[in-house]
Amino acid sequence: METKYISKEGLGRWFDAIVASEKRIYAPVKSRGQVDFKQVKSLSEVADEYIQTTQSIKAAVFPKAEILFSYEKVNGKVNLTDFDPNSVPETVLWKVHPCDAAGFRPLSAIFNWDSADKLHNAHLSRTTIVSYGCAIADESCFCTSVNGGPGNLNGSDLQLTMLPDGGAIAEIITARGETLASLCPDAFVADRGDDKSAHLVDLPARFSLEEVQSKLNKAFDSSVWKQQSERCLGCGACAFVCPTCACFDIQEDVHGSKGRRIRCWDACGFSLFTLHTSGHNPREHQSQRWRQRILHKFSYMPERLNVVGCTGCGRCSRACPVDMNILEHITSIAEQ
């Protein structure tokens, strides 16, 4: 890893060089009263002064709906067209928060835990992540409680920490980050020795992860799930804005003798999610589905995949129509 300084002017030149390299760039953009990742062509389109995008960046490596393969039956023969990894363009994810960058590891752990997921890996292998250290946070943010932080480097290829002069501390973390920086090498100059932590938000940890995990190990039959989930409406808002939720459904789009098989987002909060064809539903009640959501992130994933399934981005708490606040719920479990 190497630390450099990039001036405001240098940042602009570097961004233009990335645009000129014909990479696809996704960055936070303000529109319709919300900030979300959209394809951009210039730095001026990128949003300033916001806490968090409504949705995470996960769609870049796990699209909402993606064609696994398509097929056509001609004269009794089936012609199959498989997903082509080369169809995925080189992509730069710009101004990703450290909590989103940290989400790539749990996401990939799920997509590769038994067999390697061709689609997800194709996206990820063509993606360069430029994160920005966070100078502001709100009451829903809790990255520092889940092994992260406003300047955490996990998952980032290059991280910028903005300075008052409009320039930034540039930490070049991976080879991919280095390749991206090399598109405009003279924009990156010697580190001035700026103190990174002075330009990041101070976010004290809100709970101890170890304590939560040890409590959760004994909480499967606890009444806490029913008590916490009573107001839950059973929608998928929390799962869909989450940077690590990876549940999907497989759907068939058939038109006569041809069709496509599509993978699309699904959510464990939906009652249909675990409904068997027999009519039996092993997670019949919302409390069981809420328990699954929490245990999956804070217990099953750490145990099986060695990674916490929550990055503390706080999106689920902000998106929930009925204030199912994950920080409040986890804190209360830790304190029980």
Binding site: R32, K64, L233, C235, F240, W265, V322
Partner: peptide, 27 residues
């Protein structure tokens, strides 16, 4: 343009008192 933002989390359906069907047409 508005609907293209929808990711089908069905929060609209879940929050509606009149969407009480146990099996929704979309399912």
């Amino acid at each position: 343009n508005e609907m293209s933002q929808c990711f089908k989390c069905y929060a609209c359906r879940s929050a509606c008192p009149l969407c009480y069907c146990t099996k929704c047409v979309v399912e």
